[in-house]
Each structure stands twice: as structure tokens, then as C-alpha cells.
Design a protein around this nucleic acid. Structure first.
Ligand SMILES: [Mn+2]
Ligand SMILES: [Mn+2]
Ligand SMILES: [Zn+2]
Ligand SMILES: [Zn+2]
Lengths: 138, 138
DNA sequence: CATAAATTTATAACGATTCTAAAGTAGAGT
DNA sequence: ACTCTACTTTAGAATCGTTATAAATTTATG
């Protein structure tokens, strides 16, 4: 079974029809060794650079939101002009390089155990994210 | 010396002319016991509710950016449609209530000491922020 | 093939933020 | 107090990432 069929199967089993647009985006996002961070604009540029048959921007947004809702992508909380997504959906943290405007993974094991010693009545914790902003040394 | 003069003096000593718009915003932001979080829209509404002589939206943006650059306000890193500001400029962390879309302070002492065990060559740490997303219990 | 539901698409709309350029104001010097 | 200049305010336009719309196309199913 080739990649196309694997992705098609995965999409189908998630209740998403395996269109050629979605499979192309799957290949770009998930058919690689390492996870990575991207913006919609990054992705749009990647698509344009590898193919002649382009995908409409609306479809890119639709697809990324669908993948995020299915848990295949994570949206990173960073106050920026653009939204960042992450193909690494495990619990982990980030450096944000303010010069390159780029996210870098910070594994759970690189961050001391975080214990929140305060509770909010009627609320439960959904996630705990650490963002370490870095800038050039000089 | 009344509040107006105190704020005027503070503005002047920061290299900002104490205009009536800036002093009005100072009173709203800093003339209170507790620090708080707000968006530009929140602030605009507050201004409209306490006074008849309104301040143009452009001036509100200008002023908030000036105050932030002078270190009187902090911008909170949260991926939202709007930018959140904080009159608490000390090192601290946040809960973000996803139902109310509201920030709540999380004191340094309520978060276990954070030790980042990874370094990036040529980069230095500018800030470490913990964001704890919470939702309603039910 | 027939049909219904899902998807894609181009384009419009939206909304937060920034830009522009003209009018107004504050502080320094005279 | 008058002048000058730099700073500030302002309304409105522009920008730009994102979302909504509605028509055309594609997919899944019988
Ligand atoms: Mn920002
Ligand atoms: Mn968002
Ligand atoms: Zn990551
Ligand atoms: Zn705070």
C-alpha cells in the first residue's frame, strides 16, 4: 500500500473524504521524518512550489481546520500576526525565535515538571503550555 | 499633588507629552488597586462609558503601544483574535478561561520553578511564559 | 446511472490593526 | 505672551489574515 492509499484510508476512517487536495496536503504535512511548525502562508507556498495544480486558499484553511479538529494538528498559542500549526501533537513546549519568527520544539523532558498550585472553582485544566521567547545573543 | 499631575509627571519623565487623552487612559489603567487584563476593544468601551469626549481609536492604539514600549504594559502571548494587554508588568503566568475568553493571573509562586534544560546556540532567553488553558468543569 | 451529501472554489465580507495626511497641541526659546 | 517645531490626535483609508457565501464539482452509495 502506497502513501496515497494510507492517507486515503486514514482520512476515510476519520470521516473525511479522501480528495486529492487533502491527500496532497497530507503528504506535505505527514510524509516526512520530523514534525514541524508552519503557518497557512508557509503551506500555501509549499503547495505552489511542488505542483502546478494549485489548491484554493479556502480549501487549505478548511483542510487545516479539519485536521486540527481531528487531532492531527495542534494550534500553537503565540500572539503573532499569523497562526502557527504544529504536526507534533504530543504534549510539548516551544521556543519562539523572535528574530526568525520561528517555533522550535522544547520537549517535556527539557522543562522541569510544572505543578500549578492554584485552582479555579468550576474550571478544569485543558492544557499547560510553556513559551520561551528567545532573541539573538548579540 | 493629584492623580492627574502624578500621571503627567510620569508621562513627561518617559518622554511622552501628557495630553488629556493619555492622562485619561492612565487613570483608567493605573488608577486602581488591582492590575487587570484588557483588549483594545475593552478599553475603548470603558472610555466611551465614562466620558462624553471620546478618544479616537487610532489614539488608543498609539497610546497602548507607547505604554507597552515604555514598559508600563505587557502584551500577553495568546493566540486569539484580539491582543491582550496586562497592567501587571511583573514576571507572572496566566490561566486563560476559554469560555469567558478571559485571562487570570497565576503568580510565579503558584507555578513550580521552571528550568529550561535546552539551549539554542546564539540565542538568549527573553521571557518564559506559562499559559494554562481552562474550561468549564461540566 | 441517480442521488444526496460533502467538498472545492472564487470571491466577498469581516475585523483587528496599521497607515496616512491633515489639523491641533505642548514645550522650548525668544 | 508670541513663535516655532516637533509631537500628537484624528477620521478615514488601507492592509491582511481569516471566515463566510453560494455556485460548481466531486465523492460515496444504491
Ligand atoms: Mn501582536
Ligand atoms: Mn486562533
Ligand atoms: Zn512543536
Ligand atoms: Zn497578568
Amino acid at each position: 500500500m502506497n502513501n496515497k492509499d494510507i492517507f486515503a484510508e486514514k482520512l476515510r476512517s476519520s470521516g473525511l473524504r479522501p480528495t486529492k487536495q487533502r491527500i496532497k496536503i497530507c503528504k506535505l504535512l505527514f510524509d516526512r521524518k520530523d514534525t514541524f511548525h508552519f503557518t497557512i502562508n508557509d503551506l500555501n507556498n509549499s503547495i505552489k512550489s511542488i505542483t502546478t495544480e494549485q489548491i484554493s486558499l479556502a480549501t487549505i484553511y478548511n483542510t487545516i481546520h479539519a485536521f486540527k479538529n481531528k487531532g492531527y494538528l495542534k494550534e500553537i498559542s503565540i500572539n503573532s500576526d499569523k497562526t502557527y500549526f504544529d504536526t507534533n501533537v504530543s504534549n510539548h513546549h516551544h521556543f519562539f525565535d523572535e528574530n526568525k519568527r520561528q517555533l522550535i520544539d522544547l520537549d517535556d523532558k527539557h522543562v522541569g515538571k510544572i505543578k500549578i498550585k492554584k485552582t479555579l472553582p468550576g474550571k478544569k485544566i485543558k492544557s499547560i503550555e510553556v513559551l520561551v521567547k528567545v532573541v539573538n545573543n548579540s
